[in-house]
Amino acid sequence: MQADSPRAAHDWLDHDAGPVVRPYAMTQGRVAPEGGEFDLVAFVVAIAGEHPQDAGLQPEHHAIVAASWEPISVVELASALDLSIGVVRVLLGDLRSAGLISLYEPPAASQPHDVDVLKAVVNGLRAL
């Protein structure tokens, strides 16, 4: 392959899959969000009036803030941005600690499940 070929400078780029950036590069090796875990159905809302101009934020952080001006669930956000849920959780933890977003968990997600209801469901399924 010639050195002046346009492909020679970007052999790491997979044109079918797009640029390859490993998830640990986006999260800087972190696997858990700052400030604790949150549910996949929690709603993310950008705080009005705040514009993330901090140079410490990555493009993915800016994309999350831009996508969350209206309430959106964590799992929908991951799908919309085409990022893994683990990466989105870590980045949301960063944004929450920076005060740029708010997370609202539905009451049912934060309460433990009623064992009696679960047993009744299992018994009903067995009866089928």
Rank of each mutant, 00 (worst) to 15 (best):
L91S: 09
S110M: 06
V74R: 09
I85L: 15
W69F: 12
R30L: 09
L91P: 02
G99Y: 03
S79Q: 14
A55D: 05
P52R: 13
S79H: 13
V115W: 10
G56M: 05
A46N: 04
A46E: 08
E37H: 06
P71T: 05
D54G: 00
I72S: 08
Q53G: 09
V117A: 15
H61R: 04
A120M: 05
I47P: 01
A48Y: 11
G36A: 04
S110Y: 01
Q53C: 08
V65H: 07
Y104W: 10
S102H: 07
H61I: 06
L40Q: 08
E60S: 13
A108G: 07
P106N: 01
D54W: 00
W69Q: 15
P106S: 02
E70S: 13
L77Q: 04
S97V: 03
A63Q: 15
E50R: 14
P112C: 04
P107W: 08
A55Q: 03
L100T: 06
E70L: 12
S84M: 06
E50I: 12
V45C: 10
G36E: 11
V74K: 08
V117C: 06
S97I: 00
E70C: 06
H113P: 01
L40H: 07
E50P: 00
V115M: 10
L83G: 04
S110H: 01
L91D: 03
S110D: 08
I85E: 10
V41L: 15
S79T: 14
A46P: 02
E76H: 09
S110R: 05
S102Q: 13
